[in-house]
Write a protein that binds this DNA or RNA. Structure first.
Lengths: 366, 366
DNA sequence: TTGTATGCGTTATCAA
DNA sequence: TTGATAACGCATACAA
C-alpha cells in the first residue's frame, strides 16, 4: 500500500508484480515501457529535471545530473521521440531527399552527409524521390509533417507545389547538387553546364574536331550538361546535332555501349565522345575496345563525375571530377551552423569542378 | 462573439483575424497549423470521426466520409505523425538498417524494398551502420524507440546487446542478405559460403588449378565467402594459403588492381582469381590487361554479385549472381504480409545464386 | 537549481 | 454510425 501511494496509474501493474523485489522490478521496467517518470522516481527527482539533464545538462547540478545519468543507463531509458516531438513542436530530424539511392553520385553525397552528421545531435532521414517530381512532393509533405529541423534537397527543379511548400516551411533548407540564383534558403553545388562546357573544351583542345555527346536519364542536370556541350560546340563552330545521342532510360554500362553503337552507325567519323556520366563512359570504352577502335588515338572518351573506377580503368578515363562527398559534408555543416545560430557567412556555394585528364583523351603526347 | 463561442483556445488568433472572411480564414489555416479539430469543425463532425474516416474509412458512413475527405483536401490537412504515434503507440515506419549506402549491393536491395513498399502505407526509414556493430546497435535503439511496425536488418552478426534488443522488440523483423538457422523472426538471403564455394568449383571445372582469392573489407559475409573458397580448394586438394590476399580496406576498383599486384608478386603462377566482389574483379581485369596477361587463357577472373557492368566489360566477366533486388522486394513483401495478418508460409527463405559464366573464365572453348 | 501545472494532436475506449 | 473523454510521454512556462 505504501509503495502504491507514489505510483502513477500506468506503472501500477509492474509495481504490483514486484512490489518488494527491487531487482525484479527493474527487469520489468526494462521489458515494459520505461518513461521519464520511471527514471525520475528512481533518481528521486522530478520528471522535469530528468528532461533537463538530458537536453540541457548544463542547467542541472553536476550531482543530480550524474545520478540521473546513472539511472538512465541502468534502466536503459530511451526518450520517446514522438512524445518529445509533440511536446516540443520540433525534432532533431534532418530530411535528405535525393532522386536516387542507387546512383553512385548521390551515395557519395550521402556518405559526406552521414560523416558530417556523426556525433552531432541531428538524425538523418533519407528520402528517395526516384527522379519523380510527384514523389518528391509527397516526400516533402511527409517530411515537413514531421517538423524536421532541416531539409536537404537535390537540385533546383521542384514542382510548383513543392516549391511553395518549401518556401513556407519553418525549417532550414539546403539545396545541393547545383548552383543557382534563387535558393529557398541555402545552397551548395556546382554548374553542370559549365562543367560540361569545360569538358568539351578540353576535347577540342586535345585536337578532337568531331566530338559527340551521349546521355541517358535526361533529368534536369543531364539536360544542363547537354546544354554545356552544345554551347561549347557552337562556340567552336563545330556543332552538329546528329552527334547527340540520348535516351530517357537510366544509364548503365551496357547502355553506354549501345549508345556508342547507335552513334557510330549514324556518324561514323566521330572522334570523341563526351559521356554524360561515368557508367556510360565505361560502357563506351568497352564498346570501342570490342570494335578495335583505338583510345585515345581514333576516339577520345570523357566521362562525368570521376567515379573511383575511372582512374583504375585501362586506359584510364578522363572525367570531370565533382566534389560530391565534400558537397555532402559542407551541406550538413551549413545546416548545422544555421541551426546552431551561427549563420554561415556564405549561403550559396559553388564548389566548382576539375577536369581529370587521363589516357583516354591524351592524344597530344601520342 | 458568436463565432468565438465554438472556437477553441489555439484557434482564437486566426478566427479573430478573419472572423467574417471565410476564404481568408482558410488561407490562415493553411499557413498556421491545421489540426484534426479544424477539419472536424469545417465538416461539422467530431475529431474522432475525422480520425476514423482517415484510418478506417469503412467505419464511417459514405456521406460523412466524402464530406471529410473534401475538407481534408481543401484545407490541406496532414496528420501529425508525432501525435499519432504517441496516441496509438505505434507507427507505419519500417526501419531498414544496412551496413553501407554507398555499396551497390545494398543499394540494389534498397531499390527492391522501395519498389515493393510503393503504394503501401509503410514508410521506409533508412539507417546506415557503416559496417560498425556499435553504430548498428545505436541505430536499432533509435529505430525501436520510434515504435516501428517492422525492422529489416542485414545479416546475422549483430552484437549481443543488439540481438537482445531485437529479440525483445515488439515489431516484426526480417533479416536479409544471408541464410541462417535461428532468425529473430523472418529471414531471406542466400549462403555466401556456398556461393563462393560454387564459384571456386566453377574455376576448377574450367581447368584452373591454382586459383587465388582476393578480398577486401572483411565483413562477416566476406569472411564466409573466403571460407567457401577455402573449403572448395581443400576438397580439391589444392588449397594454398599464400593465394589468399586480403585487406580490411573498403573495396574499390583500384584496390582490385593492387591486390592482384600483391598476389602475383607472391605467387606468380596463379592461374585464376576469385574476387570477393565485382569492384575488385574489374580492377583485377584492368591490372591483368595492363600487364599483358591474357584473360581467360593465362588467368581467369571471377567476380561476386554480378553487377550490371560485369556483362558489359571486355572481356565480359564471370560473376556470381545474387538476387539482390528480389531479396529487397520479397523481404518487404514478407514484412507486409506479416503485418497484415497473413503470416507468410515460409519465413526463412534461401534465394540461392547463379554462376554467370562469361568470357573471363571460359577457357575450355579457347 | 528544481518542481508544478498544463498542453502538444491524435487515438482508444466506451457510451449514446 | 458517431461523439465525449481520457490518456500517450514529454517539454514549455512559470513558480518556488
Amino acid at each position: 500500500m505504501i509503495a502504491l501511494s507514489f505510483v502513477n496509474r500506468h506503472n501500477f501493474r509492474y509495481y504490483r508484480l514486484a512490489l518488494d523485489f527491487h531487482d525484479n522490478y527493474l527487469k520489468w521496467l526494462r521489458i515494459l515501457k520505461i518513461t521519464i517518470e520511471d527514471v525520475a522516481r528512481e533518481a528521486n527527482v522530478s520528471a522535469m529535471t530528468v528532461s533537463r539533464a538530458l537536453r540541457n545538462p548544463e542547467k542541472v547540478s553536476t550531482k543530480t545530473r550524474e545520478k540521473i545519468e546513472a539511472v538512465v543507463e541502468r534502466l536503459g531509458y530511451v526518450p520517446d521521440p514522438a512524445a518529445s516531438a509533440l511536446a516540443a513542436g520540433r525534432t532533431n530530424v534532418i530530411g535528405v531527399i535525393v532522386p536516387s539511392v542507387t546512383n553512385n553520385v548521390f551515395s557519395d553525397v550521402m556518405l559526406g552527409i552521414y560523416e558530417q552528421s556523426e556525433g552531432s545531435k541531428w538524425q538523418i532521414q533519407l528520402g528517395n524521390s526516384r527522379y519523380s517530381p510527384l514523389e518528391e512532393e509527397r516526400l516533402v509533405r511527409t517530411f515537413l509533417s514531421q517538423k524536421p529541423a532541416g531539409l536537404i534537397i537535390s537540385g533546383l527543379d521542384q514542382s510548383e507545389t513543392t516549391a511553395a511548400l518549401l518556401k513556407a516551411a519553418k525549417c532550414r533548407i539546403v539545396q545541393i547538387m547545383e548552383c543557382g540564383s534563387a535558393p529557398y534558403d541555402m545552397m551548395i553545388g556546382f554548374s553542370h553546364l559549365e562543367a560540361s562546357r569545360a569538358a568539351t573544351h578540353h576535347l577540342l583542345e586535345e585536337g578532337y574536331r568531331r566530338p559527340a555527346c551521349i546521355s541517358a536519364r535526361l533529368d534536369p542536370r543531364s539536360q544542363r550538361r547537354l546544354e554545356g556541350y552544345r554551347i561549347a560546340c557552337r562556340e567552336a563552330g563545330i556543332f552538329d546535332p546528329r552527334r547527340i545521342v540520348t535516351t530517357p532510360r537510366p544509364s548503365t554500362v551496357t547502355l553506354g555501349g549501345e549508345l556508342v553503337a547507335d552513334l557510330l552507325s549514324k556518324v561514323p567519323d566521330t572522334d570523341a565522345i563526351l559521356c554524360n556520366n561515368d557508367d556510360l563512359a565505361l560502357g563506351a570504352m568497352f564498346e570501342c575496345q570490342r570494335r578495335g577502335i583505338a583510345i585515345p588515338e581514333t576516339i577520345g572518351i570523357c566521362g562525368f563525375n570521376d567515379l573511383e573506377m575511372m582512374a583504375a580503368a585501362n586506359p584510364s578515363i578522363t572525367s570531370v571530377r565533382t566534389h560530391r562527398m565534400e558537397m555532402g559534408r559542407k551541406s550538413m555543416q551549413m545546416m548545422d551552423d544555421a541551426l546552431s545560430g551561427k549563420e554561415p557567412k556564405v549561403s550559396n556555394i559553388d564548389l566548382g569542378f576539375e577536369i581529370m585528364v587521363r589516357e583516354s583523351t591524351s592524344r597530344k603526347k601520342a
